[in-house]
Amino acid sequence: MIRDALLVAGKDLRLEVRSRVALNQVVPFALLVLVLFAFALDPDRGLLEKATPGLYWVAVLFSGMLALQRSFAVEAADGNRDALRLSGLDPAGIFLGKFLAVAVQLLVLEVLLLVGVAVLYTTHLSGWSLLVTTVLVATAGIAATGTLYGVVAAGLRVRETLLPLLLLPVLAPVLIGSTRAFEAALAGTPSEGWPWVGLMGVFAVLYVVAGVLGFGPLMEEE
């Protein structure tokens, strides 16, 4: 299972490195979202800095949505779905592989966005242990739900409009939790943030388990 997961993750990441779609389209989009927030909320009023945690995670969700769509779009062409099914790879391994590849892309995106808010919103980043843990746990949650719901929407003509509708309500706890944890970290009161990390941890574990168990039946349909 782990070997299959690494194979699939390696394939997806190699695909992204070579095609540069994530680099050329998703990353600029993420930065664009940051700039749009600055247009929407006057940068002179200090709102941007105050709202940094919320804006940051909304930007992560929106640009992450693009990365997820992309992760399943590459499987849609040329009957790749059938090819994956016929490849003899463990479905749980395929899930974990897609999950890992998405998580790595999200992490890169999140690091860049963190630099973005630090520079553009002049937010002073602090509470690093909480910040880093939050990023890791939230990424696991987003990638696991995204991969599971992504395959639910995959292969359908309506997938572009369907995935956000399915995914964003489910990710509400992650958005709330990561935002509160970031606020706590930036405010210098990390003890308020850790319960949220716990909640997101439970969420991530739930969805990784659901994905490992549910991916097989979802792949097998005719």
Binding site: P169, V170, P173, I176, P195, L199, V202, L206
Partner: peptide, 15 residues
């Protein structure tokens, strides 16, 4: 999902 959303929103509004 309903349980976990409910839980997070509860915390969100009561913290």
């Amino acid at each position: 999902n309903v349980i976990i959303v409910r839980q997070s929103v509860d915390w969100w509004r009561t913290l």
